[in-house]
Simulated scan of single mutants.
Amino acid sequence: MSTDTKTIDQFLTENPDVDVSKAWERSFGILTDIKNRIAERFSELELDPDCEGREYYTSPNGEFEGSMQAWSGKGIEWLVNSWIGNRKASILDMNATAFLGQETDVPHFVMVFGTIPKLFFYFDLIPRSDIRTDEEYLDKYYGGEANTDFLELRGHPNFQWSVSHGQYMRALLSPSAISMSAELTDENMDVLEDFAYRFLNRWLGWLDNAQPVPAEKRTELQRYDHKVRELGYRLDPMNKLAAQVFGEDQVETMIDVRMGKAQMEKNKTY
């Protein structure tokens, strides 16, 4: 089978016991710094109550460990810095994610590093408009420098395209989405670190110059944002691995926490 379409289970079966602690330290360090830089742009951030006590947790059998921390504040509904996996046994899923409020139409920000134990990464900007018909939005956020950087990394010889087996996850991909794998080396991490900060700085620049969304359009935008947020977490194929370790009932609770189900219910205007 091509590496493009291999499942995570297949990669792990081939190399199940690789110590990826060093990769966790560097990757999660980058993501935490990126989360902190995003947080600096927003005021009145508060840790979500459902994340209290989840700074570090383990599965009942000790096979998985992780951290789940998410904040909300003025202008940002759900800022996440989390990881889950086993640093001694090949598998890690680490992320920094920012789902914005409806004050602007700037795309939501998603950045994931993982190990399987190959290096895996997924960077994306989730559109807030139908880019199949909204040419102005498409050009503004996915053209120009963003398109040039995408093509440069997509064509890098060290990286291979990675295709999700989940059809919703493929439907979610924007024109800027990078979903790739590579050998777990410092050289490849150097390339991705440089790309990650360029990706971040461009997004922060959009926030600095964002035009406000008219008040009468914000409720419908929130409805759309919440649905995309819910489905992105609930239909993630990675949930299957967690279910094998934590159990189906516990994983359902974990998914609700990860998506911020209670936060959406509390703050929805529709």
Rank of each mutant, 00 (worst) to 15 (best):
Q250I: 05
R198H: 04
T253W: 08
R202C: 03
Q244M: 15
H226P: 03
E216S: 11
L207H: 05
E265S: 09
F246Y: 11
D236A: 11
D256M: 13
F195R: 03
L207A: 03
L235M: 14
M264K: 11
R234P: 12
E248Y: 11
G247I: 05
V191H: 05
Q250L: 10
L231S: 07
T219F: 11
R258I: 12
A262F: 05
G232Y: 03
N239K: 13
V245H: 10
V251A: 09
F199I: 11
D208V: 04
V228Q: 15
W206Q: 01
G247K: 05
Y233T: 01
R202Q: 12
A243H: 02
R258W: 13
Y224T: 08
T219S: 15
K261Y: 08
Q250K: 14
D256R: 14
A242I: 12
I255S: 04
E265P: 01
D194H: 13
A242K: 06
D190I: 02
E187K: 10
N201K: 03
T219P: 11
K227F: 14
D208G: 03
D190F: 01
G205N: 07
L192A: 07
A210E: 01
K227H: 15
Q244S: 14
H226N: 15
D225L: 10
V228A: 15
R218V: 04
D190G: 02
I255K: 07
R202A: 08
A210S: 07
G205W: 01
G260H: 13
Y233I: 04
T253H: 13
M259L: 13
K217I: 08
L221F: 11
E265I: 14
Q263F: 04
L204N: 00
E187W: 02
L221I: 14
T219A: 15
M189E: 13
K261E: 06
A242E: 02
F195H: 06
R258S: 14
N201H: 07
V257P: 00
V213Y: 02
Q263N: 12
E265N: 10
G260A: 15
V191L: 06
A196E: 03
W206L: 02
A242G: 01
L204E: 04
M259T: 03
D225I: 06
M264S: 07
E252G: 09
L235E: 06
D236H: 12
V191Y: 05
L235G: 02
